[in-house]
Every structure is written in C-alpha cells, then in structure tokens.
Design a protein around this nucleic acid. Structure first.
Lengths: 341, 341
DNA sequence: TTGAAAGCGCTAACAC
DNA sequence: GTGTTAGCGCTTTCAA
C-alpha cells in the first residue's frame, strides 16, 4: 500500500471546487455559507474520510479545548492512600469534559514540577488544569495561583484559599464520625490517616473538635491517638493495626479511618487478634466504597457525593478559563451507619 | 495587569541576539550549536520563563508524542465490571508513557465511535492508541486494524487476532480455578461474568475446559450454570446471588467469579442466606485485588501480573508507531489460594 | 456568500 | 556554527 498522506483542508477544497476558507466555514457550521455548499462540502469531506488537523487548529486558535488533569497515581495506585474512590472522580471529570467536547490530558505530578505544570497552559498544551487531590502540595498550588494559570482543585476547601477548590466537607465528615462514636459510649479514640494531606487533616480536625466538645462533660475518660504511616494501603494498615493490638499500649475502642480501605484492614487485623467489631471496638471509615456495604461486618462510613464533583470541577474550570473567578464549593457529607460501629 | 502574550521563540531569539533556528537547536541540545551559545540561549529562555509551544511543534513535526488511552469508564466506574484493577493498569501506562516523555490523552469510547477513534491519529491528536480492555467491541478493533492506525489492546490474547494485544492468560486463569474447585470435591459449578467481554469469555472457556476433562471420570455428577447480568457491580451481583439462593433451583457448591468484586458480593449474599463459605460453597475470584486478602473469609483469586502490563503495552505501541509489527503477549496467571475455597 | 492573502510558532533544508 | 527561507494546516482579516 502506498503511503497515504492524510487529506488536508486544501485537498477537500479542491475536490469540492470551493476555497479553503469555505471548507473551514462549512465544517464549523458557519452561517456565512449556503446550506447547499455546506452539504456539498460535508459530503465530500466524509466521503474522503477527512478529519480536521487538531494541531493546526489549536495553533491557530487561542484555545486548545484540552484540559490537563493531574492525578498522583504513585500515591493512589495499589490503594496506597485510599480507595478506588478517586477513580470515580476521574470518571466524572472525563464524562463532564466529554460533554463539553474537551480533550483530557492526563498528567502525573511525579514527572512534572509545578513550574512545568504551570507551563502546560503557557505551552498551549491545555487551557486549564484540574488537580484531583492536592496531595501534600498545597504550597505549590498557592504558588501556581499567582501565575494566572486557570486551575481548580479537588481537595480541602478552606476560607482563605487563593484558588478555587471543590471538595466534600471533610471537617463535617470527621465531626459526624466522632459524634457517632461518642454516641456508642466509646472513650479510647484512634485516628488513622495521613495528615499531610489537607483533606485528611481536616477530617481529623473535625474528629478532634467533636471529641473536645465532649471533653467538658467527661474529660478524664477520653483518649485520642493517631496512627501515622507513610502509606495507608491495605497491607501497611493491616500490619500496623496488628502491631498495635499485640503491643503493650492500650487498645482503642473507637476508630475513625480516613479511608474505607484502611478501615477494613484494621477491622481484619483486630478480628484476627480476637477482638470483635463492633462489640470491642467501633470502626468508621471514609468514602463509602461499594465493598463497604457488604464487608463483614458492614462498614459504617462517611459518604461524599462524588457523583456531581466531576461536573462541578469542570464547570468551575471553564469559568476560570473565561477569566471569571469561580467560587469554591463544599459538598455535604453524610454518615452511613452500618454494623461496624 | 497588562495582558501578557506568551513569549515566542522569536522573542527569545531577539533577546539572545541569535536567530530563531539557533534557539530551536539550543533547546533541543543539537550538536550544531556551540556550548557557549547554547548556555546563553537557555539562560535567556529560563529567565523569561519561555516554554515551547507544543502545538506549533506538533504541527511542524510528524509525531505528536501523544498517546490516546481509551478506557471505558462507564462500564468500570462504580465497579460495574470489575475491580479497581483497571486503575492500576492505567497507572502503569501513565508511568511508562511519562518515562518516554509521551503525553497521555484520555478518551472515553462512549463519546467516540470507532471512526472517530481511528481519526484520533489522522487528526494528529495522537500517534497511537492504547485500548484498556476491549469491552464488547472486538469487531470495531478488527475494523480499526485494517486502517493502518497504530494501536495495542489490553484484553484477550488469541491466535488469529489482526492486532497486537497484551493480556493475562485468561483461559489458564479459568482453568486453574476449575481445577482447584474440582480438587475440593465440588460438583455444582457456577460461572459469574459478562461473557460478552472476550477476556471474560476466555476465563469461562478455560473453566469449562477443566470441567469437561473431568467429565469422563464422573460425568453424571457435574453441573455447570451461568449467571448472566447486565452489570456485575457489587450490588447487582449481590442481588442476583440472593435471588438464586432463595429461588427453587439447585444452589451451586462451587463458584468462579470473573472479578473479585462479584465474588465478594456473592459470598456476602450466600452468608446472609445462612450458607457457609467454604463449607457449603467454595468461591474463587479474579484479579486478586488488595481487599481480597483480608475479606472474610479471605478470597481465593486468580492473580494477573498487571505491574508489567502497562510498560509492555507502551513498548509495543511504540514499535507499532515506528512501523514494526509487535507480537501479542500473554502474561502468566497464578491462583492464590485462600480460605474461601 | 465566497475567495485571496496573511500568519499562528515552530523546524527542516539549504546557504554562508 | 549560524542565519535565511519556506511551509506544516488551519482560521481570520479583508476585498470582491
């Protein structure tokens, strides 16, 4: 087979006996072209399998209609941070972008400094950026906000943020979890999660807040501790929980884990050590992943409505690209109570 | 703030008192430029925060250094088909592409017919395509293979495939599962999975193969049935399993589910109905997701080594783009035996 | 309503 | 080694 050069707009113009600009107009449904010629041009174009060269188009136009999505795989894969949850978020974003006919450029922050992330837009690779999770890079994002680069962030939503963020109400989530555990009459609390992540730190703050409100009434009987790990994968959490149970320290009777995955790991470790859930210890997770409902015992969890989040992120980013300043949004969280607590 | 036009190569050339091509050469570390001028140009460029316009570059060069990755979110999200497993695959691909300095364009097939998928390359949006899962679109892929579009597929690997595929040995996986279940002395077998997907159909074939080999020795005692659902999410599987147990038909004593998620759902439903796993029924899943190890009871599962798969897919696609014809590769599967069987 | 000309920012070919 | 020229495929003036 001979090497076929892809057809250009010029080719189509020649084949249709019109000029290049007319083809361009016809393809973009410009009102400046007769219905008749439009049809004709479109016929010729489809017949010859013509597709427009996106790069030439992007070069010429000011917008690329491409959005960069930054997702830190290295901390999510193998469930290191959390749950398949973030995947649903990506799916939501993908769908919302598809509806607006925007391409999705997926980037790993590992290979890209903030510098180069910012330059994704200046290099015309994309019109804007969506960060799916701020990870431990708050400072970088703040720096980026000064650079007139349109971006939005899924993560912690706080008052003084210099950029637009969408996230669930992490503080409320932690607060609800603590309230619920208090209601079960628990007194030795354990928080599990990587507080270097602002989102997770907020969950912990909400958790602590609810506990300290209670502190007045029965101060001496409350105990709070943290389990800090480099890595909150199933296996690492499981290992740490096993060590805790077998260790000399007091064993908690109420656990709030910042991810369902970690919660399940801990339950599993505790049960293996002969403790019962929820008899000996109540456990609350986060994200309400599908498996939680049918875990043994079914897991109480904080649910964030991620279904709308993707669409919201895209919507706000589009505003930002148009030069407006979209507001941050905090999504409600809800405690789904099941047998584990 | 005044509107700042991004600096072009021409600007940098002027600022550095050299010509445009010299800047271009300096940036690309061409040997055709003095070390001295190179340094000088690079200095000026970084000082002014210059970044090359990727679109202009792509337009000019024949290659875009962008790879389209097609992932059917609609069937994966909310765990409809399977496990977070596919997410790890995406991570692997992302990493491998990053190492080769290739951009990743994420596409949903939902919004794109095969026609338009093929045109991703002709429209110069990407140099090639990686399909993560063939879904039910085998025919489309076969059609695409005739179109001289470089692409590779994660999915079923079969002899007569007109394209390059990488996948685990699904047949072997099913075979191993059946063998193992037979070893447990089981006789009423149930397969769970969407056989419209070629990968999953192969698992079933391997499963059936092992059973029919046994058939000679104790024909009359073997029973095989299928559970077909539109959707193999946790909840749908759970519901179907519950109906099965409560229904009039015979209840299986050995189950092979094409995903761990479905396996867990079924176990949960059976247990809720008063059956014991593995006493009354043995269950084997697929993918060996992290949660499987600590499920109650720990889940026997077929593990596919997905760690290398991403890198392999990328490597083969690069060959395809260079005009070579990479071979398909089948990855070993291994049965991880745990308490559920 | 359509066409001719110019130019987006870059690199390859060729001259010096 | 470096500069000059040309052109990738498209859209946007502007003129007809």
């Amino acid at each position: 087979m001979a090497i076929k050069r892809a057809k250009t707009m010029e080719d189509i113009a020649r084949l249709a006996n019109v000029s290049k600009p007319t083809v361009s107009r016809a393809l973009r449904n410009s009102p400046l072209v007769t219905e008749e010629t439009r049809r004709h041009v479109l016929d010729v174009a489809t017949k010859h399998g013509y597709v427009i060269n996106r790069n030439a188009q992007k070069l010429r136009e000011s917008r690329t209609n491409t959005i960069a999505v930054v997702l830190d795989f290295s901390s999510h894969r193998e469930n290191r941070i959390s749950d398949p949850f973030i995947f649903n978020l990506l799916a939501g974003v993908s769908e919302a972008l598809g509806q607006r006919d925007q391409d999705l450029l997926l980037c790993s922050p590992a290979h890209s400094s903030v510098e180069s992330l910012g330059s994704i837009t200046t290099s015309r690779g994309a019109d804007g950026i969506i960060f799916l999770g701020e990870g431990g890079r708050r400072d970088d994002l703040v720096a980026l906000a000064e650079r007139a680069v349109p971006f939005v962030v899924w993560g912690a939503v706080e008052k003084a943020l210099p950029y637009c963020a969408v996230g669930s109400d992490n503080f409320q989530g932690g607060f609800l979890a603590a309230k619920h555990l208090l209601d079960q009459g628990r007194s030795r609390f354990l928080f599990i999660g990587d507080t270097h992540h602002a989102e997770i730190n907020l969950r912990r703050q909400g958790f602590i807040k609810a506990l300290s409100e209670e502190l007045g009434s029965r101060a001496a009987t409350l105990m709070v501790s943290d389990m800090s790990l480099d890595d909150f994968s199933y296996s690492a959490s499981h290992r740490a929980a096993t060590e805790m149970v077998e260790g000399p320290g007091p064993v908690p009777d109420a656990i709030f884990a910042a991810s369902d995955t970690a919660a399940m790991a801990v339950i599993s470790a505790f049960r293996a050590a002969g403790l019962s859930v929820p008899e000996d210890v109540s456990v609350v997770g986060y994200n309400d992943i599908p498996a939680s409902e049918h875990f043994h015992p079914p897991l109480t969890s904080v649910r964030q409505d991620v279904h709308v989040a993707g669409a919201l992120l895209v919507e706000k980013l589009m505003l930002a690209i148009e030069g407006r300043s979209p507001q941050s949004t905090m999504l409600e969280t809800r405690l789904i109570v099941r047998a584990s607590s």
